[in-house]
Design a binder for these strands. Sequence first.
DNA 1: CCTGAAAAATTATTCGC
DNA 2: GCGAATAATTTTTCAGG
Lengths: 156, 156
Amino acid sequence: MDKPMQVDAIDRKIIHELQQNARISVTDLARRVGLSKTPVAARIKALEEGGLIAGYRAMLSPIKLGLSHVTYVEVRLSDTREAALTRFNTAVRAVPEIEECYMIAGGFDYLLKVRTRNIAEYRRVMGDQISALPHVHATSSYVAMEAVVESAAVSL
Amino acid sequence: MDKPMQVDAIDRKIIHELQQNARISVTDLARRVGLSKTPVAARIKALEEGGLIAGYRAMLSPIKLGLSHVTYVEVRLSDTREAALTRFNTAVRAVPEIEECYMIAGGFDYLLKVRTRNIAEYRRVMGDQISALPHVHATSSYVAMEAVVESAAVSL
DNA sequence: CCTGAAAAATTATTCGC
DNA sequence: GCGAATAATTTTTCAGG
């Protein structure tokens, strides 16, 4: 699961359509990419087995779910040796409210995207979950006031 | 498209399953939530029409696509009046490499998540696209070294 | 590697209860 | 909301270029 796959123009078209509508049928998809069903079905299968298509997911409206509060958290660790980073990474993956987490070069160590129902719930998550992550030394929170672009498709 | 919808425990189960696998059939889904197909199909339709399920998308592996370079960009604007913000928001949505964009309270004005093939492409996007967004006054870039959690499902 | 059509399997939908 | 029957689609397969 690491090296880039080779995809031609037709594969890109297929990926593009599936990114817009994961439930499109092979019949429709074949029509849109200008091929018959047979090669399209085979290509989809190859893309899935190669890991380029990692799965299919329903996109939810956070607002409709009442989960409209987004906070970014910069985290600095007290220990940045490999073992500490590994422990931190593992613990982060166990907190469902953490939607994204990247290790950052320079300035601070990690950036988290946290989604909650409201500020009160964010404070609870911060106090109970994030502060308790291993080796956390300091955090800075940045509250989102508006989602301008949210969970956009990967641009091909 | 704004007020939270009312969803019961069964709806949440349905949503949960569809978030893990958008291509599951109503038959399978009905078995998993412990109901017959009829009400499950009706609930799915209601969730779609109510906007809680916004669509279905294939999840792609950025690494397999060769799009493994993620940078977060803090942006400060020279003009933060409503009209300027609106212009900025509109322009941001036209840049496909910007995967996310949130307006932030305090410290800086916007946080962008930018995905590119490599650093060279990031520099091009920064120079040609991001710097050219309306009213941009200053930017700070933070390069991601590792994706610990990437595009996690929304936690119900 | 793709086409086109036939066959087989699933799936969604529609009832009365 | 259930469960069976119907009806519609879909995926798969295969001979042929």
